[in-house]
């Protein structure tokens, strides 16, 4: 584990921002922090970053990492972006790299590498305020990764980026993952979470209400439903219940003791013109909405 959070709580005045949250982030994986606004994600991240101290509970780094230097081991891209607008790009990135404890040579090497990787070398000596919003977002992203931290926390990393740059940043995130960096992706974009995350943590009102590997969670929430696509409209029968119908695609749920083989025989006998048959995969957004509603 790269990070363990144990029984952590944080209160501001009368507001309980985080309530007895415990979880661990495994090494070398991409995890998602999901939850509605006010769920306590930012407060939790700030406690992980040692910006806030928890009222109770502990946040500890994995083996071999000095907890006193926690800030050096974790890169952070906050949701509220901020840069020194009057300062030049390279100078800004060098400063952030030095603050993460890198020596001058390493800071310079990493800065140049990521500027090149993100296609920003031509603007290295340009004042940040003269860059487009998208380029400023990329500089912000580089500032989080420039130290090559062991754990990277990205809060809405794709906001403000055009599709080309979304693809570019996605590639870099996957490269970082492959190089062994653990990544936490905090996002409202469920599609992005499904694309990137291997593990998710769903928060609501300061509590961790759902966590685990993404695929098992989706399968568990999908039930035994199937999506059947046929040339002709699917007729009702005793083998299954029709849940939803959209043109030629029908979502069905098999009745007890009915197998997929039974269904295929029936479709052939009906001459329904089977095009495809696949297990239904519930969108993460549906799980999100359902869980949040269930927890008030």
């Amino acid at each position: 584990m790269i990070l363990s959070v144990e029984d952590v709580s944080k209160t501001f005045g009368a507001t309980k921002a985080v309530k007895q949250v415990s979880f661990s982030i495994p090494e070398g994986r991409i995890c998602g922090f999901l939850g509605p606004n006010g769920a306590g994600k930012t407060t939790l991240i700030r406690m992980i970053m040692d910006i806030y101290k928890p009222d109770v509970g502990t946040v500890t780094l994995g083996k071999g990492l000095e907890d006193a230097k926690r800030k050096n081991h974790i890169g952070y891209l906050p949701e509220e972006r901020g840069l020194y607008t009057k300062t030049k790009v390279r100078e800004t990135l060098l400063y952030f790299a030095r603050l993460k404890g890198l020596d001058a040579a390493k800071a310079s090497e990493n800065t140049d590498y990521f500027l090149d990787r993100l296609g920003m070398t031509p603007v290295a000596d340009t004042q940040i305020e003269k860059l487009s919003k998208g380029n400023q977002q990329k500089i912000q992203f580089i500032s989080a990764i420039v130290s090559r931290p062991r754990l990277l926390i990205l809060d809405e990393p794709f906001s403000g980026l055009d599709p080309v740059n979304v693809r570019l940043v996605s590639e870099v995130i996957r490269e970082l993952r492959q190089s062994g960096i653990s990544i936490v992706l905090s996002t409202h974009q469920m599609g992005q979470a499904e694309t990137f995350c291997e593990q998710i943590f769903l928060f609501n009102k300061g509590e961790l209400i759902l966590s685990g590997e993404l695929e098992p969670i989706i399968q568990q929430n999908s039930g035994g439903s199937l999506i059947v696509e046929t040339e002709r409209e699917l007729a009702a029968c005793d083998l299954f219940d029709i849940l939803e119908r959209e043109e030629r695609r029908t979502k069905i749920e098999l009745k007890p003791d009915i197998t997929t083989q039974d269904l295929l025989h029936w479709l052939a006998w009906q001459s329904a013109g089977l095009i495809s048959l696949q297990p239904y995969r519930v969108p993460l957004a549906d799980i999100f909405i359902r869980e949040v509603a269930a927890h008030g």
Partner: peptide, 16 residues
């Protein structure tokens, strides 16, 4: 200025 341009949180992720 650092509070207004939101740099402060980035700084605090690196220094106390």
């Amino acid at each position: 200025e650092e509070k207004q341009n939101r740099v402060i949180e980035i700084l605090l992720s690196s220094v106390t």
